[in-house]
Design a binder for these strands. Structure first.
Lengths: 110, 110
DNA sequence: GGAACATCTGAACAGATGAACAGGGATGAC
DNA sequence: GTCATCCCTGTTCATCTGTTCAGATGTTCC
C-alpha cells in the first residue's frame, strides 16, 4: 500500500513545513545545538558566532512550529528540542551523514 | 556527549540541503509518490495534477541530490527513492504527522 | 526519414526568505 | 527607582525559489 494514501494534503504541507524549518544551515545548527540539553539564547549565539538577534529570530520560528520548547530561568531563556520523534530523527540523520562520509570513500560512484 | 561534535560544518550543510529538498510541498509529494515503487514522470504529474515540466524540474534536483534514482524503461523514465535511510525516515515522519492528528485532538494544548 | 510520445532544458516573473539594523520589553542587581 | 543584561519584535532590502511557457532532446514505431 502506498504511503501517500496514509496522509492528506494538509499533512504533507505540515511535514514540508518541518523540513523547511530544518533546511536552513544556521537554523539547523541552532536545533542541533539545543538537541541534547536546554541552552540559553546567548550561548547559542556565541557558539555559532552569530548575532543574538538572528538567533532569536530563528528561535521564534522554531518555537512556533513546536520544534523547540522554551523555558525561562531567571533572565535567561533556555531552548531545547521538545519532540522525541524529531530528536530521534535528527540523531539518525546526523549519523546518516556522518557515516555517509565513510561510505562515500568506499563507493565514490561518480 | 553532544551531537554537534559528531559532525562538522560541511555535514550540517549537507543535511540542511536534504531537508531543503524535502521542504517544498510539491517536491515532497513527488518524493512520497515515488517512495514505495518506481513511477514514471508522467504518472507522477497526473497523480499530483501538475505539469510534467514542473515534475521534471523537481526530479532533476532530487536526482542530483541522490534522493531519487532514475531508471529508463523504453521511452519512460522511472524514479524511486534510492536510499533506505531516507525511505525509512520518511515513513516514520509520515506516521508522525498522521498520528499527530490524533494526538492533537487528545491534547490540544495551545 | 518522419511522426508521436515522454521527458528535459532554458528564460522570465511573482512571491517567499534570510540577514541586518533599530527599538522595545522583561528581569535582576544595586 | 535606576541601570545593565538578555531577549523579543518590526522593518527594509538583496537574494533565492517555484512556477509557467516555449522549445529541444531522446525514444519507439512505421
Amino acid at each position: 500500500m502506498g504511503v501517500r494514501e496514509r496522509i492528506g494534503e494538509d499533512q504533507v504541507v505540515e511535514l514540508a513545513e518541518m523540513f523547511r524549518l530544518m533546511s536552513d544551515p544556521t537554523r539547523l545548527r541552532i536545533i542541533l545545538a539545543s538537541l541534547d540539553a536546554p541552552v540559553p539564547v546567548g550561548e547559542v549565539a556565541e557558539k555559532l558566532n552569530i548575532s543574538a538577534s538572528l538567533v532569536s529570530h530563528h528561535l521564534r520560528l522554531l518555537r512556533a512550529a513546536r520544534l523547540l520548547q522554551a523555558e525561562r530561568r531567571g533572565r535567561q531563556v533556555f531552548y531545547v528540542v521538545g519532540d522525541s520523534h524529531i530528536r530521534s530523527m535528527l540523531t539518525d540523520m546526523v549519523d546518516h551523514v556522518a557515516e555517509g562520509e565513510a561510505e562515500a570513500e568506499a563507493a565514490p560512484g561518480g
